[in-house]
Simulated scan of single mutants.
Amino acid sequence: MQDLLEKIIQENRKYTEKGNLATYIPELTKANKNDLAICVIDIENNVYKAGDYEKKFTIQSVSKPITLALALIDNGKENVFAKVGMEPSGDPFNSIMKLETVKPSIPYNPMINAGAIVITSMIKGKDNDEKLERMLNFFRSLSCNPTLNINEDVYNSEKRTGDRNRAIAYLLKSEGIIDGDVEEILDLYFKQCSIEVTVEDLARMGANLATYGFDMLHRQRIIPEDIARTVKTFMVTCGMYDASGEFAINVGIPSKSGVGGGIMSSVPKKMGIGVFGPALDKKGNSIAGIRVLKDISKQLSLSIF
């Protein structure tokens, strides 16, 4: 496995030149676009890493399936999916269009920004501090990393420039889809996206989803099995933005990407995979990271289809 990962990283590093860093969050432009890394953790807890695996980056939209799991634990499926749909949108992740043209104005799914903001608004807690602490502890448990925390520079950068997300959130508020103070909800959402991770953290979260929410390292259940199944289904249908169908055909692994360059993948009953490559394609996915996943899926016959 180690030799395979090193070979795949070496063969795909050239594709980083074809992508671009995310510019709408200024702090993300400080990344090295040539970075590329992978970590694989199987359900026997074997860990394999290759490339720039020590680099830290912010989780961004890879956080969405994890926060969805917490919201489902807090509220139940019926309440959550009364406010967020279950279908692919076919639109960019930050699109507002369907909120205005389709009635009722509930977001199509929890993996686009509109849906994720609704999900974040449903996290339980007496105030934002308690909600953030519960959220962080959930991410720490799922990643088996008690040191996970917020990258304050990225958080402040997102908060300063998050006008499109503000537009989405205020539209959702006007339609009665979210309750509470919009700025407080957005503050929590920006912090959620600014959690700093490594590829090993993503691989561990993917591995714990691969075992349907059971932490094999500490022998404890973190997520109910039916919720883990729901989360992975969204990763298949909506996890790679409006490139999810193409990704399902070419790679076939439940995955979620983020504009920080991370991708978390979960191969049911086999392994979790974390990939990092901050150079993005036009859809907002890691351009070399997708090729890395395509190669490992082909080499190890990992497609679930």
Rank of each mutant, 00 (worst) to 15 (best):
residue 133 E to W: 07
residue 277 G to P: 07
residue 205 M to T: 11
residue 35 D to N: 14
residue 289 G to T: 05
residue 243 A to F: 10
residue 95 S to Q: 12
residue 210 A to V: 01
residue 114 A to H: 03
residue 149 N to Y: 08
residue 271 M to A: 11
residue 72 L to H: 04
residue 36 L to G: 08
residue 29 T to D: 08
residue 127 D to Y: 09
residue 83 K to Q: 12
residue 135 M to H: 06
residue 159 K to Q: 06
residue 66 I to P: 00
residue 92 P to W: 02
residue 259 V to K: 00
residue 112 I to Y: 02
residue 289 G to R: 00
residue 97 M to S: 12
residue 156 N to T: 04
residue 225 E to R: 15
residue 10 Q to M: 10
residue 26 P to W: 05
residue 70 L to G: 03
residue 241 Y to D: 11
residue 289 G to V: 03
residue 30 K to P: 01
residue 220 Q to L: 04
residue 146 P to H: 06
residue 106 I to T: 04
residue 200 E to D: 11
residue 95 S to I: 08
residue 229 R to Q: 09
residue 40 V to E: 09
residue 136 L to Y: 10
residue 84 V to L: 11
residue 63 S to F: 05
residue 144 C to G: 12
residue 289 G to D: 05
residue 76 G to A: 11
residue 28 L to P: 01
residue 56 K to E: 15
residue 207 A to L: 10
residue 233 T to R: 08
residue 291 R to A: 12
residue 100 E to V: 13
residue 131 K to L: 02
residue 31 A to I: 15
residue 282 K to F: 07
residue 108 Y to H: 12
residue 190 F to D: 03
residue 32 N to V: 08
residue 46 N to I: 06
residue 48 Y to D: 03
residue 5 L to I: 13
residue 205 M to F: 10
residue 246 E to V: 12
residue 259 V to W: 00
residue 206 G to T: 04
residue 261 G to D: 06
residue 251 V to H: 02
residue 136 L to D: 04
residue 294 K to L: 02
residue 202 L to Q: 14
residue 111 M to E: 03
residue 198 T to K: 10
residue 182 V to T: 11
residue 87 E to T: 15
residue 42 D to M: 11
residue 120 T to W: 05
residue 157 S to I: 07
residue 113 N to E: 06
residue 43 I to Q: 01
residue 82 A to H: 08
residue 6 E to N: 15
residue 224 P to T: 09
residue 170 Y to W: 12
residue 300 L to M: 15
residue 12 N to A: 14
residue 85 G to L: 02
residue 248 A to S: 14
residue 103 K to F: 10
residue 41 I to N: 01
residue 8 I to D: 01
residue 177 I to Y: 00
residue 156 N to L: 12
residue 44 E to D: 13
residue 84 V to E: 05
residue 119 I to S: 02
residue 68 L to E: 02
residue 58 T to F: 02
residue 272 G to K: 00
residue 293 L to P: 03
residue 171 L to N: 07
residue 215 D to C: 15
residue 229 R to G: 02
